[in-house]
């Protein structure tokens, strides 16, 4: 029994929460967070400086919580449009399991906590980058770009691309060209990934009034732009080998993965306007997830093996 006046609570619109810890965890967008954790980890391991494993774990945890916090702020702000989209209607806020106020408080507290933890225990450059990422995703992307321009995910994609730079900065205390190339790979990967989704979910986005590329420029233009981004992404994926950061093994794997990306994008380019099933777009969406995971996994393995060979040969 709670010591609270029932009538007073009704007057101020208060209700006892039924949200569980799982609902709050869902606010962190765990699937997006897993990608952030993985790419940040690759940036951290690829950095040419030895780091205490415990501090590395804390850095990854803080980056994950920071990314999750920006997800919670996104769900707080976007609850109105999430409610009308089939893909997002089941999220905790539009489903009524978590109140908007709870989501906002949760996001703000975790934002401050993650940035301060990273700053105090690791270094302030990585903390500043994490703070910028949260701000960019929650304010620049969610509150401004998303509902205003079809370039929303192109520019907003920068927020999702920064984690390897933060991981690198957590270890070295600096930002390098190598970490910026990892940023560039994710940055160029984002538009074809999301536009493939937007092609077969265009009704959803139209209902929510979000100006995604297929709804603004049309499916044909979107398909051409997807292919153009694929043509740029494929060689950029190989760039770390070209610049001598990795072995030829990574170069070969990234070239094959890039060729696969172009192939799937080519199939999307050839899709008919009246194709309702949109299998090529769905296939590209699935492959793009595999591509990003595989290319970063290849980079990770190459970094570890390359360093071991260097140490062994020295």
């Amino acid at each position: 029994m709670a010591l609270a006046d029932h009538k007073l609570m009704e007057e101020v619109g208060f209700r006892m929460s039924e949200a569980t810890a799982g609902d709050f965890f869902a606010l962190l967008k765990p699937r997006v967070m897993s990608l952030v954790v993985f790419t940040a980890f690759v940036g951290l391991v690829a950095a040419p400086v030895a780091v205490n494993p415990l501090l590395a774990m804390i850095a990854i945890l803080a980056i994950a919580i920071g990314a999750g916090a920006s997800g919670a702020l996104n769900m707080w702000y976007d609850a109105d449009i999430d409610a009308v989209m089939t893909r997002t209607a089941g999220r905790p806020v539009p489903a009524g399991r978590v109140t908007p106020g709870e989501a906002l408080s949760f996001g703000l507290v975790l934002s401050v906590l993650s940035v301060m933890t990273l700053g105090v225990l690791v270094n302030w450059l990585s903390a500043a980058l994490l703070a910028f990422t949260i701000f960019f995703y929650a304010v620049v992307y969610t509150m401004w770009l998303k509902r205003w321009t079809p370039q929303n995910i192109v520019i907003g994609g920068a927020a999702g691309a920064i984690p390897p730079v933060i991981g690198w900065a957590a270890v070295t205390g600096s930002v390098s060209l190598e970490s910026l190339i990892l940023f560039l790979i994710i940055f160029l990967w984002t538009p074809p990934h999301f536009w493939a989704l937007a092609l077969f979910k265009s009704d959803d986005y139209a209902r929510a009034g979000i100006p995604m590329m297929p709804n603004v420029a049309g499916p044909a233009s979107t398909r051409r732009q997807i292919f153009a981004y694929a043509l740029i992404l494929a060689p950029v994926g190989v760039l770390p080998w070209v610049l001598g950061y990795t072995t030829a093994a990574y170069g070969a794997v990234s070239a094959v993965l890039g060729a696969g990306f172009v192939w799937y994008a080519w199939k999307v380019l050839g899709m008919a306007d009246d194709d309702r099933a949109m299998k090529p777009a769905k296939a590209l969406f699935g492959y793009s997830l595999l591509y990003l995971f595989a290319i970063f996994a290849a980079y990770l393995v190459d970094s570890i093996v390359g360093r071991a060979l260097l140490t062994g040969g020295a």
Binding site: M1, A2, M9, M16
Partner: peptide, 9 residues
Amino acid sequence: ELVTLTERQ
């Protein structure tokens, strides 16, 4: 008047 929490709450 006190608030009685439901089992779910």
